[in-house]
Design a binder for these strands. Sequence first.
DNA 1: TTGTTATATTGCAATATTACGATTAATATT
DNA 2: AATATTAATCGTAATATTGCAATATAACAA
Lengths: 109, 109
Amino acid sequence: MGLAKTEMFTEDQNAIALFAKVFGHPARVSILQHLFKINSCVCGDLVNEIGLAQPTISQHLKELKNLGLIKGNVEGTSVCYCIDVENWTQMKKIMYPFLDQDISKSDCC
Amino acid sequence: MGLAKTEMFTEDQNAIALFAKVFGHPARVSILQHLFKINSCVCGDLVNEIGLAQPTISQHLKELKNLGLIKGNVEGTSVCYCIDVENWTQMKKIMYPFLDQDISKSDCC
DNA sequence: TTGTTATATTGCAATATTACGATTAATATT
DNA sequence: AATATTAATCGTAATATTGCAATATAACAA
């Protein structure tokens, strides 16, 4: 297996899981924090910053890009990656209601 | 590999990734939503509700429990699972600043 | 005690993820 | 053109995840 049975869940549940999954690795968390912090970035910076090999960083960037959370523009020999503001906002609209469910009635036992 | 190099990241980054990872499967998202909705729950309900086999649900519950997001009390032959309000609140304190990073200066390219 | 019910654990097969060396592709620079 | 620089892709090894059948365990009921 190793394969989630997405067809038995709602679109919302699958969307939440997809975003969460991409946040589920500290390297990607670190990449995103770095992009927020310095506002613009090339991949090489991230390799130095994070300490994983260049292909590994490139792979993580690809996953973030696939989900639309970042975008990359070619600038000469390097690539300028940055947060995709619109999609990040969209992601928050999906994640927030999940994290913010009414907790007042919980804690039954 | 398949193993994240957690030692090269901050505690905060690893904590975010750990929480996100457990949210990274639609079955666990569904379980949590269900627990919030009906406020109290036994595992059997979840098996019917979600449609995965009982051992699979049990395993997902275990992961949620390991992270402290839910707790389970034995009630006769069944187990009453519910959200751990305190830890859920703690989780939000970690996840929110990450999701809510200042976006205003982003979108450079 | 014997069964019944509810959940957990074990073991395993299928697939996914992580990481990196080697290579490739694309663009600059000389 | 030849070379350097930067990032993407390929291939692969190591490990993790998902899902379930089979089994174990625990608590109750008759």
